[in-house]
Design a binder for these strands. Sequence first.
DNA 1: AATGAATGAGCGTTCATTCAT
DNA 2: TATGAATGAACGCTCATTCAT
Lengths: 217, 217, 217, 217
Amino acid sequence: MRELQLQVRPGTAAFSKGQQRVLKILQSARDLMIAGGYHNLTMRKVAAEAGISVGNLSYYYPNKEHLLRDLLDQVIESYMWEFDKIKEEAGVGPEQQFVAIIRFIIDDLGTQETTNFFPELWALSNHDSHAAERMDALYIKARLVLNELIEVLNPSLNEPEREQLALFISASMEGLTPFAGFNKPWESKRDNIANIAAISFLNLVKTIRNEDIDQLR
Amino acid sequence: MRELQLQVRPGTAAFSKGQQRVLKILQSARDLMIAGGYHNLTMRKVAAEAGISVGNLSYYYPNKEHLLRDLLDQVIESYMWEFDKIKEEAGVGPEQQFVAIIRFIIDDLGTQETTNFFPELWALSNHDSHAAERMDALYIKARLVLNELIEVLNPSLNEPEREQLALFISASMEGLTPFAGFNKPWESKRDNIANIAAISFLNLVKTIRNEDIDQLR
Amino acid sequence: MRELQLQVRPGTAAFSKGQQRVLKILQSARDLMIAGGYHNLTMRKVAAEAGISVGNLSYYYPNKEHLLRDLLDQVIESYMWEFDKIKEEAGVGPEQQFVAIIRFIIDDLGTQETTNFFPELWALSNHDSHAAERMDALYIKARLVLNELIEVLNPSLNEPEREQLALFISASMEGLTPFAGFNKPWESKRDNIANIAAISFLNLVKTIRNEDIDQLR
Amino acid sequence: MRELQLQVRPGTAAFSKGQQRVLKILQSARDLMIAGGYHNLTMRKVAAEAGISVGNLSYYYPNKEHLLRDLLDQVIESYMWEFDKIKEEAGVGPEQQFVAIIRFIIDDLGTQETTNFFPELWALSNHDSHAAERMDALYIKARLVLNELIEVLNPSLNEPEREQLALFISASMEGLTPFAGFNKPWESKRDNIANIAAISFLNLVKTIRNEDIDQLR
DNA sequence: AATGAATGAGCGTTCATTCAT
DNA sequence: TATGAATGAACGCTCATTCAT
């Protein structure tokens, strides 16, 4: 896991104590965001949640934008780290590995953190370019794993085609979040839906032909 | 299209002038929400956008919650109305109709309104039960159209299976919004992605067997 | 009971219907004042309570001050009317009549209206000259009844002495309101306190000598 | 004088500077209340009077209710402190002491503060339970002084009788406020009225018999 | 590294009042 | 007479931010 480049005020968080503080701040911010959305993320509440004063918070983060960036970066980084782990996980064959990834992602979207954090991120990315940029980086990484497996499963596809396929598969799974995520109406059917997803995506990857993608409408 | 039940203060918007005002208010609110997210939706800004005073705005809407409800209801209603239209649209056969719907929905997610409004709705629904409720109602309607076609395309599926299939397909398309929507990185590939979606979903519906869905993991 | 000179807009409340409206308005205002104090008396609430529009309320009362005046006048007038009745009530002798009045007043201060209305009036009179003026007129009338009986009970007192005695007696009883009035801590002892008051005031009136009042300190 | 437990936001007014500010705030609030009644007591006006910003005011007082409580507590505490002083004041004998207290209280009600503050408190206590509670505590203390002297002046009375007597006497004096207080019609006769009160109350206490109080009507 | 103190703008909401119809 | 519509100021309160210590 690469070291996060914190957006804290320069000269700050130099020693262990300060670094601990920053971690506590970011965790508090994350908790507030998950519990009440970006709407609920205020400097005062973050400070209170972290058990420090507003003044002290702004010693580390001179303004809200910097804090938000670090918050997004940190959370996104943790998801990226999970994608790194996925790759390392031994799978007997490419098909089993592919299905395992599908299952892993759809499982994960059932956690409260994922269910609540990502819609905020998507909404944020519509009005905040940094959020958009970081979100983009995250999903590029997510698709990379899929891309490599697609290449093995269907060698006839070229790179752009693989990318578009990965995009479709990744976005499809993300789309399940507001419907089958934590506390959502279809939560109890998430496993069934994961079955559908797995069989559908695997079949898609193995059978699709170049002309299916680039056909004119 | 059924008449919207406005949440305005009783006795208000009784005549044409007031109704026009409420319409203008709702349109202003919608515009602000799309342009800057829920975060940007304040009573003052809505009033300014609608060209009226804050006092006058709260003459119609006693509080922000009522305004938000009407805003959500109105936008959601307009999407529901589109789904009604889809059904009426003559399609030569069930396959063509099915593909047409896929294409219609993915096309629509490329509009600025859809791209920006829905992530706000999903985020909102995590913390606002009314938003969750209305969102649910909208997607139930969206899936109904799919459901009916699935029944024709694959008569061997039972009702719960069809519903889960429709949920997967609908959610998958929604998931494309933050990636291939208006001004999004994959905007230019939206048509290709629609091709993938169409072929994938059609194949899924036609070939899936009961045991594929309910299999134990 | 003399006709109240209403402070309504000239030309208004000319006919029976309008007069009924004004009565309803004043009663609504009185109810609000008693229920929530002057603090709770707003034009909007009065209009709502009276079942009319704000616009219509201001047709009768061009501003809040006029309404307040009529409200005070009306309530005060009703108390004045009671004092007129007291005098007419046959009492066998002056002592019994005197005691009856004491009892009547202390009984009355146990009603919710009296308990809640008068402290508002006293507070108002500190900052509103019209309230002060009307309040003065009311208590002049109240003391008049006492004054006449004092003259009979103790003929040796001159007019100023009688007035000061009446003032003391009247004010003493008023002072019981916040302590032994409706829902107040000593409510259940009101009768006992009335006994004390009666015996104390009667003895005072009968035994006080001129020099007791005007003595230098 | 016991230390007041301030209702300020925790962590606030920890040092001298903050404590001075809170004192200034409370004094400003008191001044506004006396000058214009509770109706005139707004957070903005208090802030302006204290020479600080609204934000800074609400840094100390999270809401108006807390400020009002501290205001009432502070003023009431200062009166309580006076009652403590009264007791300590050496008086030659119980009669002289009793009369001195009567005179002291009636004198005090001639100050602008007392004349204007108490009616507001009585009115407030009808709609605010904390105000009612604090007011009750104040008068309990006021009656205690009277109670002890009554016991000496008339040993034949039992405790409940003494309490009712003290209540009657205390309330009677309070009742003079709106009539003989600061700037009131009978202001110039306050001394005469105090004479009447003194002679009347003393006579009452010395001559009343148990059966006078508890007699059935 | 941390605090208490402070500001000024903005929030959602209510107010008394006005006015055309 | 009566209404719906409208304003502009003020309400209590929270915000991001700044700063001296």
